[in-house]
Design a protein around this nucleic acid. Structure first.
Lengths: 240, 240
DNA sequence: GTCCCGCTGCGTACAGTGTGCGCAAGACGA
DNA sequence: TCGTCTTGCGCACACTGTACGCAGCGGGAC
């Protein structure tokens, strides 16, 4: 254990040669394409190398190992998360809500992030995530949270978004594996639910309220509902 | 290491005859022990079989494949999650808070669950999880949430807990991999933070509020803070 | 009794994984 | 012209999940 401090992947010196066929950037962005196209279980060093017209072990000149590659790839997509400036006149609540929605949209665009959240988590901060959480933290500070509380508020918000989108992505990938469309699955669930309503009539109202809606819209509403509750709870600390 | 003597054919036949040496229950509970002891990357069919005194492929008589084993194992630990009865006199808010804390405690006891959340998610309901979410939903119904809203409120709560504990578990496993104790890591972070404070004096209050505390307590406080905010936001829908 | 069929466990085998190691070929400073 | 450094490559190794077929057993049918 020569280096007890967390090895900074990010501090590795950039290759200053001309332009080699392989580079960390090319590897990472091609990995994102592979993951988007074929999912997380299709990411192997050999497959990725083949896509780049290179052998598997050639990648190890630019990436320490597969875990580091995954960290880099995750930070890459964090770049799609948008955070307003703290002095934007729209106010902190809408800024934070927008940020939450853009984080969710990122995860739904790249559902494989959800399946590696537990491995990399938010502890390993790449430059993209670091910059964005800095800006997000600034939003909470500008909102007027007490000194030690802004980062707690931020991690509350992030925890909600991560938890909800992880569940969504897992559910969608389960759907994809089962080969059904979302609507078919909703129909099958509804039929068993209606059976349950026949047995327990007191459940009627609950299911009646949601029957027959577009499942994607239901997911959107569900996310927005929880987000509003979280923001309500946070706003009470600063305005009340 | 496991058995210095060569197992005699007789002994093997005896064991096979009496009652099945392997069963799904034995496999699942031994898998939990293995995961707790050595982490998720140590779970292989061969290693698990060896712990049970069996060959790797023997497990496939009781478990379809590794993915199914993981689903079973995850549902097994969901059994440690406690949910009060809906008619318990302590009230819905404390009941829900207790449930959230017990879910978090479960994940921290079995940190490997966090790294498979993204794969199994909450969509694949095993019997344990199903029973518990039914009881939790009853808590929200009893709290007086409007018909279609109780399950949204529940998924909000669960999303927060899952997101927060997933991050915690990932952070702790990163720590474990780096071979440091939590206190050492906190110290190293503090030193860089103090450097940042020297550069940007306006950050002083933020870090001063948390300097030198027990990191485990900080994590507890952080979780409880966010939980309170989420519950505040939810309670406003039912009491206000 | 005898026969057969189920269930259970085991060993072999195969395709696929991450990655350590050593070699070759080109580029660059001396 | 020499090292030396960087980049890519092929081989090899240990390890993974798991398909498949075989062997011994218990219990029911005759």
């Amino acid at each position: 254990m020569p280096e007890p401090t967390v090895p900074s992947v990010w501090a590795r010196q950039r290759r200053a040669r001309e332009q080699p066929a392989l580079s960390q950037d090319r590897i990472v962005s091609e990995a994102v394409r592979l993951l988007d196209a074929e999912g997380v279980e299709a990411l192997s060093m050999r497959a990725l190398g083949a896509r780049l017209g290179a052998g598997a072990t050639s990648l190890y000149r630019h990436v320490a190992n597969k875990d580091e590659l995954i960290e880099l790839v995750v930070d890459e997509v964090y770049g799609e998360m948008l955070v307003r400036d703290a002095d934007d006149p729209v106010g902190w609540r809408t800024s934070v809500a927008e940020c939450a929605h853009s984080l969710r949209a990122m995860v739904l665009r790249h559902p494989w992030v959800a399946s590696v959240f537990g491995q990399v988590g938010l502890a390993q901060l790449g430059p993209n995530l670091m910059a964005r959480s800095e800006r997000l933290l600034a939003l909470f500070r500008a909102a007027g949270f007490p000194p030690g509380e802004a980062d707690q508020a931020m991690s509350t918000l992030i925890a909600y978004v991560v938890g909800m989108t992880t569940s969504e992505a897992a559910y969608l990938s389960l759907l994809a594996r089962s080969g059904q469309t979302e609507q078919e699955w909703a129909d099958s669930v509804r039929s068993t639910a209606e059976q349950a309503v026949r047995d327990h009539p007191r459940l009627r109202d609950e299911y009646a309220a949601r029957r027959g809606d577009d499942p994607a819209k239901l997911r959107d509403d569900n996310f927005t509902y929880g987000l509003d509750r979280v923001l309500d709870g946070l706003a009470a600390r600063v305005s009340g």
